[in-house]
Amino acid sequence: MPDHPPFSATPGVLSRRQTVLALSAAALAPLLLSACQSKSEPDANQSTPQAAAKPDPLAIDWEALNQAVGQYPANSPFLAQPAIVERLTKLLGQANYAQAQLNLQVASPLSVEGSVFYITGNRAHEGGINAVAIGLDEASNTIRVWLLQNSQAHVFAEPGANFAWPRDVQTMIGNSQS
């Protein structure tokens, strides 16, 4: 390998090799410096960062529900939130979930009373026979469903869902018992 003089034969002009070496050194310098810096031990008084928690797939998007208040389920898919669908299906079972959906043919808009978001509905022309009320309580993060099938009332509730039914739902339940 021929010897290359340390400097270019022309003053002020770098050879190709010198240019490559200079650029390589400039690119590697920050990496080398960061590798050489000492790592300090974490301070016992400081908490170590935890891995970011994965979002709960069963967490209801309460903000989306809040924005959907006053809207009908046909115009806003608030009941189609994956967490709500999964929790209702688990609570009701497939058959009762399907019945609840049928009982929302004629539905009220999404309403809220206190911390309870709710919707009521019935099958067309079968209000006193097949109806449903779904309550979602933000305070307890629970769901409760009143399902009227062929004039037989059933209540399904997640553990801890002991919130009071909103007035409109109480009225609906009372009217079905008359």
Rank of each mutant, 00 (worst) to 15 (best):
N141V: 07
K39E: 07
G128Y: 09
A25V: 12
A64S: 12
V69F: 03
D61I: 05
L110V: 01
N75G: 13
M1I: 09
A164C: 07
K39P: 02
P49R: 13
R123Y: 01
S111T: 05
A26F: 09
L31H: 06
L110F: 00
Q67R: 15
Q152D: 11
Q46V: 12
H125V: 05
N130Q: 04
L92P: 00
V106F: 03
L21G: 10
N103V: 01
T19S: 14
Q94K: 15
V69T: 12
T120M: 08
L31Q: 05
L33P: 00
T48L: 15
S47Y: 06
Q99R: 15
F7Y: 11
G160N: 07
N75H: 12
V145D: 01
R167Q: 12
R167E: 07
R17W: 08
Q101C: 03
A64Q: 11
S111C: 06
A153G: 14
L102N: 09
A59N: 03
G127T: 02
A157I: 01
S151W: 06
Q37S: 08
R144L: 03
A26Y: 03
P55G: 08
E113Q: 08
R144S: 11
T142V: 04
Y72I: 10
I134A: 00
F156M: 09
T48R: 15
P77Y: 03
K54R: 13
L33D: 00
Q46I: 09
D43A: 14
H4Q: 14
A35F: 08
T48N: 10
L33F: 02
R167A: 13
N162A: 14
M1V: 11
S178C: 06
S115F: 01
I60Y: 01
T19H: 10
L102V: 02
P166D: 08
N141P: 04
A29I: 13
E138Y: 03
C36Q: 09
V85H: 04
K39Q: 11
R144T: 03
I119H: 00
E86H: 05
P42T: 13
A64L: 09
F156I: 07
N103C: 04
S40F: 08
G135Q: 04
A59W: 01
I173C: 01
L79M: 08
N122P: 00
N75S: 14
L58Y: 03
S47G: 09
D56C: 07
P5F: 12
D3E: 13
G160K: 11
S8Q: 10
G93M: 04
A153S: 14
D61V: 04
S151I: 11
E126T: 04
L65P: 01
S151D: 09
T142S: 09
G135W: 02
V169C: 07
L104K: 01
A153M: 13
Q170P: 01
N130S: 07
T142G: 02
R167W: 02
A98E: 11
L147P: 00
A44R: 11
S15L: 12
L33A: 06
P6D: 15
A52P: 07
S178K: 15
A133S: 01
I134H: 00
A107Q: 07
A107T: 06
